[in-house]
Every structure is written in structure tokens, then in C-alpha cells.
Amino acid sequence: MTVNAQTENTKAAKENSNSDNAEVLLQLEKQVSVAVWIQFIGQIMEAYYLSKIMLVSEEVRSDANERQILLGAWVQTAGQFLESIGTTKQILTDEEKLTLEAQEITNLGDWLQSLGLVLEANAGTQIILEEKQQELEPTKFIP
């Protein structure tokens, strides 16, 4: 009889533990969603201010690499927005089909962010190479 009572207590403890874990997991997922939205706010601010710089500076506006950096920032912003939407939808649904759709949205956002990052990194590399090339050019001697 005591073994049976101990087994029942162990089962009850495991069920409570699983319930507690599920609650902790849900809270952590909600915090991830908030963090992703905060990232989106930061990303949109970056793209916005880069756009403002582009409007103010003719030198920046006329440089194809600088325009590519701006494009990359906006592509990342779109991707971050989709990731935010997808992450939030995943938390708000228990339905398997809707969860899968939300995961697809999140994944598309990740891909867009990656594409934007590649655009920015490529343009940044080109800018660095151009600056190094200018340093290597001999200065002209004008008598």
C-alpha cells in the first residue's frame, strides 16, 4: 500500500512538474517574442536614420555602395518584421496548421534578414577596398 501511495505521489509530482515546465516555457516564449519586437524597433530606426543620411548627404546618395547598404538595411527591416509577426503567431496558437504557417513566416523573415545582411556586408567590403586602393595610389607630384 505504501509503494502504491508513493507511486501516486511521484506521478502527481511529475504532472505538476510538467505543468510548471510548460508554464515556464510559455513565459520564455513570450519574452522571446517581446525581444524580437524590440529588435524590429531598433532595425527600423537604423533604416530610417540611414535614409535620412542619404537625403541629407549628396556624397552618400551618389555612392552605389552606400545605396546598397541602405537597401540591405530596409530588407533586414522587412525580414525582422516578418520574424516578429511569425514569432508572435506561434505563441498565440495551439493549432498545428497555424503554428506551421507561423514558423514559415518566421523562417522567411530570417532569410530576408540574411539577404539584407549580405547586401550590407558586400557594400561595406567594397567601400573598404576602395578606401584601401586610394591609400595605395601614389600621390601626384605637381611642381
Rank of each mutant, 00 (worst) to 15 (best):
E66D: 13
T87E: 06
E83G: 05
L50C: 05
A102S: 14
T93N: 09
W74V: 07
W111L: 15
Q39C: 03
V3P: 10
Q68S: 09
L55P: 01
S33L: 08
G116E: 06
N4E: 14
F40N: 04
W74K: 06
W37L: 03
T99V: 11
E59C: 06
S51N: 07
I142W: 08
T125D: 11
S114L: 08
A73K: 03
L55Q: 11
N65E: 05
K30M: 11
I127Y: 00
T139W: 15
D94V: 11
N9A: 15
A47M: 04
S57C: 05
G124L: 09
A64N: 15
V34G: 13
Q76K: 08
Q39K: 09
M45D: 14
T10I: 13
A123D: 00
L25E: 15
A5I: 12
L100R: 11
I38T: 09
S114P: 01
Q43K: 04
T10E: 07
L129W: 11
E131T: 11
V56W: 08
A78M: 02
I85R: 07
E15W: 13
L108P: 03
I53V: 14
L117E: 08
T125C: 10
G116T: 00
L98F: 13
K14R: 13
S84R: 01
L50A: 12
Q6Y: 11
A5W: 09
E101M: 15
Q126A: 08
T99N: 14
A121G: 03
T139I: 15
